[in-house]
Design a protein around this nucleic acid. Structure first.
Length: 237
RNA sequence: GCCGAACAUUUUG
């Protein structure tokens, strides 16, 4: 547990191996920790095998484990397996929660299936699931990276209509889309909206904008923003 | 309640 909390997954794993070697009985929670560790190291297939082990022993994996695996499959670009697991989870009668929902949405966006992600968001909302800022943020980010600024803006506005508070992640994702589309004036305007809405810009916000300004050959403005950032006590990473 | 999810710069040297 301690190794896991410190993200020392290699140590978690070797202890786990030791338990197996000594033929100790492995409690479900040990599986949870090791599966998460393997997922974080992109050893998805090993993680998936351990999930099967659990099932064979009659243990019931919780939703968090399935979510970690779905996320990991998306991160190694294996959309098919991710969706197979999602279907299994649904078939087993688990009630999806907001974390699983946003994991699926983020995964779909990252593999370039933003439209499917939007569909999933719509379905989730209809089934009464909380769709939170995480989910919207992934979609805004995905649309922005695909150059679909207009659509990104629509989703960004939709958040307000649906009463979902827009945090810095959402603003940053939207501003990033604008910068990548070289719409620097709008991007700067959104920065000011952000402040008006009471949302504090972060290092990410400034990095995104400064990078965009330089790439649009607006060095003076970029340097001005840099100073503004420093004045606010925000340190570049 | 806990565990599981989102944004930038760089990324073989």
């Amino acid at each position: 547990q301690a190794f896991h909390s410190e993200r020392r997954y290699d140590r978690t794993l070797s202890l786990f191996q030791e338990m197996i070697d000594r033929k100790l009985r492995i409690p479900p929670h040990a599986y949870n920790l090791v599966i998460c560790g393997l997922c974080n190291e992109e050893k998805v297939n090993e993680a998936h095998r351990l999930l099967d082990d659990m099932l064979n022993k009659g243990y019931i994996p919780n939703l968090a484990i399935y979510t970690a695996l779905i996320d990991a499959f998306f991160k190694v670009n294996n959309k098919e397996q991710a969706l197979v697991l999602l279907k299994q989870v649904e078939d087993k009668g688990y009630r999806l929660d907001k974390v699983t929902c946003s994991t699926v949405i983020n995964g779909l966006c990252k593999v370039g299936e933003v439209e499917k992600a939007k569909e999933f968001l719509g379905q989730s909302r209809e089934t009464g699931l909380d769709v939170n800022a995480f989910s919207y943020c992934s979609i805004i980010d995905g649309l922005g990276k695909a150059g679909k600024i207009k659509e990104a803006e629509e989703v960004f506005e939709e958040m307000l209509e649906r009463g979902c508070v827009r945090n810095a992640h959402c603003f940053n994702a939207f501003i990033d889309g604008l910068c990548k589309a070289a719409e620097m004036d709008t991007a700067m305007a959104v920065l000011r909206d952000m402040e008006k809405e009471g949302c504090e810009p972060t290092v990410y916000t400034y990095t995104i904008l400064i990078d965009g300004l330089f790439k649009s050959h607006k060095s003076e403005e970029a340097l001005k923003l840099w100073d503004e950032m420093i004045d606010r006590g925000i340190t570049p990473t």
